[in-house]
Design a binder for these strands. Structure first.
Lengths: 193, 193
DNA sequence: CTAGGTGATGTCTTAAACTGCATCACGTTG
DNA sequence: CAACGTGATGCAGTTTAAGACATCACCTAG
């Protein structure tokens, strides 16, 4: 509960969630009881180094002793790396909608929904850096998931899919507007709202 | 004894030695028994994170969770910082001989020993980067200590001091020669041997 | 030689991490 | 509604870090 245990706990939980693992998933891989992982992530235990290292490794993290004078540089480095990771993630998520789009093009070639999803995917890829905003990537994830699910169960009635796509469009617009524009873009990404 | 405990143990011991602290010194500051510090540095215990963090902090180190993908960059960063530290240390050590030199200038203004020490200090400062060679900084430390001690107890007979200065000169020459010369320097640092 | 500082090692005790197992409250899905 | 996965919590038992001693071998300085 003291020193900086909270920081480690936070990092571990975040890394686990990034991988979409449940505590029981991690528990199995690390051969550590789920109960204990829960206590670790809540910062209610002072773990042994071996335990921390073990969990960290499974989560693609390394425990390192860093000279205090190098800490700012190291943290900047990590932040930058994570930002680029977010950028790649945003593009990957957008691209993961391609199968849905393909199916739409076959089953509803003339629907406006199809084209709206197409341009939306392009837009998200274009503004990928904006998803470095806190929480933005999570929102994108959820929206993509909803669209994909709606796309799978889509019959002739595209209402659900329309609504899901609308949700993603709102996120996109929100991000673009939240950014203080240095210069008015030559083209506008707006259409609805 | 498993995972990477050895690495932490090594780092801690090295950091302590860099500060010229005995295990009992550290023991007092950290309020941890010397016996336990010995066991930690020998890697024979699986310390709790709180203990590691506590010791690290006293040694100007921070325990950090670093994404695996950033590890090479971070390690390069740390290596570079340490090299620069060595460079500063070499200059500092050389300058720490100034009081000895000052005393010599007063008590033996006409002695060749005085001038030899003076130029030697200048030389060491000039070739400070060469002290990044493994072990070189340690040798410099020892040589400086010996000279300072000989300087303090120097009477009219400067024999001991001469010998000590000669030792430092040998280190300097060794470093300069060990370096594969890209270009012959305009001036030579040699004089003896 | 002796005295003092170094790090390593041993023993006993206490506190706490860790295991194993069970259970719970909560939210989601069918 | 029931079924399931989620994370949190409780408890008995084992393991072990950590504190508080003492002691040792080694080296260096006086």
């Amino acid at each position: 509960m003291s020193y900086q245990a909270e920081a480690f706990a936070q990092s571990l939980r975040q890394a686990r969630l990034d991988k979409r693992w449940s505590q029981r998933d991690l528990s199995g891989k690390a051969r550590i009881p789920q109960a204990h992982i829960s206590r670790i992530e809540s910062g209610s235990v002072d773990v042994k180094v071996s335990t921390l290292v073990e969990l960290a490794r499974l989560l693609d993290l390394e425990l390192l002793l860093v000279p205090r004078s190098s800490i700012p540089a190291v943290e900047a480095l990590i932040r930058e790396a994570e930002a680029n990771q977010d950028l790649r993630s945003a593009r990957g998520l957008a691209n993961s909608l391609q199968p849905t789009l393909r199916r739409l093009r076959i089953e509803h070639p003339k629907s406006s929904t199809t084209e709206r999803l197409s341009t939306l995917i392009q837009d998200v890829i274009a503004i990928a850096p904006l998803f470095q905003a806190p929480g933005a990537l999570g929102e994108l994830e959820n929206a993509v998931t909803v669209i994909r699910r709606a796309g799978e169960s889509a019959d002739d009635n595209l209402k659900d899919l329309e609504a899901a796509i609308h949700g993603l469009a709102r996120i996109r617009n929100g991000l673009v507007h939240a950014r203080t524009p240095v210069q008015t873009p030559a083209y506008s990404l707006d259409e609805e709202d």
